[in-house]
Structures are given as structure tokens and as C-alpha cells.
């Protein structure tokens, strides 16, 4: 069972389930064949296999990083049905926290996970409890305005405290290594592995723990959850905390190869949103797939259309997917 928080309302009756499965297989086959054709075209344009392999490896690794940044966004959407526009700002905040931790304590950047992730969890719970819980029954645009306001507030606090000067975090021993002849920085490989670990942890928490079952229950039917004694507001706070912790982990892992600026979050937001929609809103393994699709699209488009911005291709893919599968490549199947 994939870890999706969404109901698929159209799959009622047991007969509806089997076609869904084969349809997902169809989607997977189509996706893989499209990628294969695009790769072949890119190979012709690239002229050398080294260039192609470099693009593929970079695409996969960057894709993992995109999904890392998108994980908190999709989790929060799945349960609260809110697009958290502050997700990017939370990642930026986490990068600054990493910078401060490394700078003041002189620890290894990844040790900062032990500080940043819990701190972000506490902050996330406080934000949900104080700002979002009071407006959970308000119209959706109110909730969106709150998260946009929150993003602006975080950005400006960062600007106030750290100024506009970009910061950076050095990862000791961050050398380039060779994978299948392609050269990549170690820190990006670690971030990619981190994305896989995060998907595994979130899926385990949601599927195997008592609190995870409560979270899925609230996502499936908040009224039903209240009727069996669940305090939905505290579950929303726990969920936002988990989402903020995911943003925190992402911030620590991307900090070594990202320029840390107060507005860094805005860039993450756009890509993360595309990734979440492609993977199916609220679908956690889907975010991983969505990230890989975006990462590979960018790199291969760079080979095929070297004069255009890689973002162009990403948005073309995004629009095509929205058009033919509005629920995302892998939908919301449970």
C-alpha cells in the first residue's frame, strides 16, 4: 500500500480497484517509455555518452533533492488540505539554523540535524496551534493568506537577523566522486540518500505507528476522527510539526551546496509545488517520483534545447500532466 493520505473517492466498490492497479502500471510504462525516448533524443544531441550519463546522474540526484524539499509540503497538504506557501521559507530557516549551529558550535554540518530537526518540529507545532488551527474551518483562501504571511514574516526575520549577505556551510571532505563516469559532489549524494531515508521514515510513521494511524484517519475523515475521540487540532499540529521537521531535514541536507539567502525559500517553493502536483498531492512516495521526473526533465531538456531555460521544459511537462492526469502522475490511489 502506497503512503497516500488522500481518499480516491471514485474507487468505491471492490471491482473498481483492479483497473486502478493496471492503470497505474500503464502510467508507469508510459512514463518510462517517454523518458527512454527523450533520453535517446538527448543522446543524439549530446553526441557523447559521457555528457548523457552526466545529465542522467545529475538529474536523478537533483530530483532526489527536489523531492526532499517537497516532502513536508505534500504531507501537510495530504492532511490539512492547505498548500503551505511557507514551506520554502521553513527550508531557508533550517539552512540558517544549520549555518548558526555549525558556526557557533563548530560541529559537522550533519550533526546539525540533531538540533535543527527537533527545533523545526517545535516551531511547526507552535505555528499550527497559534496561527492555523484557529482558521481551519475558515475558507481556504484565509488559510493560504496565513501561510503566505508566514513566509514573508520568516524571510524578513532572516533578513533582519542575518542581513542580505549570502552565507554558506562547508561540508568537510566534500569532494567530487565519479559515478558511471559522471562527476558529482558527495554532499549531493548524501542529500539524495537523505531523501530516500526521509520517505522511508515518513511512510513507516504513517503506516506503522499509532499516531500515524490517527493522522491518516484525520486525513480520511476529520469528523469521523472527532467522533472517535481524536482531537483533530492536535493531530493537525503534529502533522505540521512533521512537515516542518521534513523541511528542517531538507534544509540541513541542501545547505552544503546551496547559497543561503533569506529568499532562498521562494525558489524551492516553485519546484516543490510542481513536484507535489506531479507526484499526486498528499502522496509521499509520489513526491519522490515527482522529484525525479523534474530533475531528469531539467537535465535532458538542457541537452535537447541548450538555448532554453530548463524550467521551460519542466513547465511544459507540468502542463501536459495537469491536462491528461489532473491528479498527478501517480494520482492519489491509496
Amino acid at each position: 500500500m502506497a503512503t497516500s493520505l488522500q481518499n480516491a473517492p471514485e474507487t468505491t466498490g471492490s471491482a473498481a480497484r483492479r483497473p486502478t492497479l493496471s492503470e497505474r502500471q500503464k502510467v508507469a510504462i508510459v512514463t518510462v517509455s517517454v523518458l527512454a525516448v527523450v533520453t535517446a533524443v538527448a543522446a543524439l544531441r549530446a553526441g557523447s555518452s559521457t555528457v548523457l550519463v552526466q545529465a542522467l546522474v545529475t538529474g536523478v540526484l537533483t530530483g532526489g533533492i527536489y523531492s526532499l524539499v517537497a516532502m513536508g509540503l505534500t504531507l501537510i497538504y495530504g492532511v490539512l488540505h492547505i498548500i503551505n506557501f511557507a514551506n520554502g521559507a521553513l527550508v531557508a530557516l533550517a539552512m540558517y539554523l544549520t549555518f548558526v549551529t555549525v558556526d557557533t558550535m563548530g560541529v559537522h554540518p550533519y550533526t546539525a540535524l540533531l538540533v535543527v530537526v527537533p527545533a523545526m518540529g517545535v516551531l511547526g507545532a507552535l505555528l499550527q496551534t497559534s496561527l492555523l488551527n484557529p482558521v481551519m474551518r475558515a475558507p481556504i483562501q484565509i488559510q493560504l493568506l496565513v501561510t503566505i504571511g508566514l513566509a514573508l514574516a520568516i524571510e524578513n526575520v532572516l533578513l533582519l537577523v542575518f542581513g542580505p549577505t549570502p552565507r554558506s556551510v562547508q561540508l568537510p571532505g566534500n569532494v567530487g566522486v565519479s559515478i558511471l563516469g559522471a562527476t558529482v559532489e558527495l554532499s549531493r549524494i548524501y542529500a539524495f540518500v537523505g531523501a530516500l531515508v526521509l520517505v522511508a521514515i515518513l511512510s513507516l510513521v504513517l503506516q506503522r505507528t499509532a499516531i500515524g494511524t490517527s493522522i491518516r484517519a484525520v486525513a480520511a475523515n476529520p469528523e469521523g476522527a472527532r467522533l472517535v475521540g481524536i482531537n483533530t487540532k492536535s493531530i493537525y499540529s503534529v502533522t505540521f510539526a512533521l512537515g516542518a521537521m521534513a523541511a528542517g531535514a531538507a534544509g540541513v541536507l541542501v545547505a552544503p551546496f546551496t547559497t543561503i539567502e533569506p529568499t532562498s525559500g521562494a525558489i524551492f517553493n516553485l519546484t516543490a509545488f510542481v513536484v507535489v502536483v506531479l507526484g499526486g498531492m498528499g502522496n509521499i512516495p509520489g513526491a519522490l517520483v515527482g522529484g525525479l521526473v523534474v530533475g531528469l526533465t531539467e537535465q535532458l531538456a538542457g541537452l535537447i534545447l541548450p538555448d532554453e531555460s530548463p524550467l521551460l521544459a519542466v513547465f511544459v511537462v507540468f502542463l501536459i500532466v495537469l491536462f491528461i492526469r489532473p491528479k498527478g502522475v501517480f494520482g492519489r490511489a491509496s
Partner: peptide, 21 residues
Amino acid sequence: RALFGSLTVDENLTMGARARK
């Protein structure tokens, strides 16, 4: 009914038991 549609029968029953604590 307000069931948890994307949860299994057993999980729905387990959630029901949360009320009695």
C-alpha cells in the same frame, strides 16, 4: 457514517477504540 475510507476495516475498529482510553 464518517468512516475512514482509506483505512482498513481493522484500522477503523482500532481507531474506534481510541475513544475509550
